[in-house]
Amino acid sequence: MKTLSLTLVAGIAFAGLAGVIAPAAMAYDGTHCKAQGNCWEPKPGFPEKIAGSKYDPKHDPKQLAKQSESMKAMEARNAARAENFKKTGKWVYDVSKIQ
């Protein structure tokens, strides 16, 4: 039981010490604001231009287009459902059942 207590006390002391040191190392003085409330600035070493740097995510255009394609398909299905509802007065969810 004493071992657990000492471990717990040591962990709490270390966490307290880290909490005191970390904010001082990461502190931002707010002197480089682009506008009122817009005080974000990159960490030192972060490039001005992301494209071509190691931070560039290099997304595949085919993967990025998937969401817009699925949204267009969804809008087409919803348009068919709405048109069918206007004609028949019944809402049919399954578009394959709409004639």
Rank of each mutant, 00 (worst) to 15 (best):
A10L: 12
A10P: 06
A13D: 04
A13V: 08
A13Y: 07
F14C: 10
F14L: 15
F14T: 08
F14R: 05
F14I: 12
A15L: 14
A15N: 04
A15D: 02
G16Y: 05
G16I: 01
L17E: 02
L17T: 05
G19D: 04
V20E: 05
V20Q: 13
I21G: 01
I21Y: 13
A22M: 11
A22T: 07
P23I: 04
P23H: 09
P23M: 06
A24Q: 13
M26E: 04
M26W: 12
M26D: 04
A27L: 09
Y28T: 01
Y28A: 11
Y28W: 05
D29Q: 09
D29H: 14
T31E: 14
H32K: 15
C33S: 07
K34E: 09
K34I: 03
A35D: 06
G37L: 02
N38F: 15
N38L: 11
N38H: 12
C39L: 07
W40D: 09
W40A: 09
W40V: 01
W40P: 00
E41N: 07
E41F: 02
P42R: 13
P42M: 03
K43P: 00
K43L: 06
K43F: 02
K43R: 12
K43T: 01
P44Y: 08
P44K: 12
P44I: 03
G45M: 08
G45F: 05
G45D: 02
F46D: 05
P47N: 10
E48W: 02
E48D: 15
K49F: 04
K49P: 00
K49Y: 01
I50R: 02
I50F: 01
I50C: 00
G52T: 07
G52Y: 12
G52C: 11
G52R: 04
S53I: 02
K54V: 01
K54W: 05
K54N: 05
Y55M: 03
Y55E: 06
Y55V: 00
D56W: 07
D56Q: 06
D56V: 06
P57E: 05
P57N: 08
K58H: 15
K58S: 04
K58N: 13
H59W: 14
H59M: 09
P61C: 06
P61I: 00
P61N: 02
K62W: 00
K62D: 08
K62G: 02
Q63A: 13
Q63N: 05
L64S: 10
A65M: 08
A65Q: 15
K66Q: 15
S68A: 14
S68E: 15
S68T: 11
E69F: 04
E69T: 11
E69Y: 12
E69A: 15
S70T: 01
S70F: 14
S70C: 03
M71N: 11
M71C: 01
K72V: 01
A73Y: 05
A73S: 10
M74L: 14
E75N: 15
E75G: 01
A76L: 13
A76E: 09
R77M: 11
N78I: 08
A79F: 02
A79Y: 06
A80F: 02
A80L: 10
R81H: 02
R81S: 02
A82R: 07
A82F: 10
A82L: 08
E83Q: 14
N84F: 14
F85W: 01
F85E: 08
F85N: 00
K86W: 10
K86T: 11
K86F: 09
K86M: 07
K87Q: 12
K87A: 15
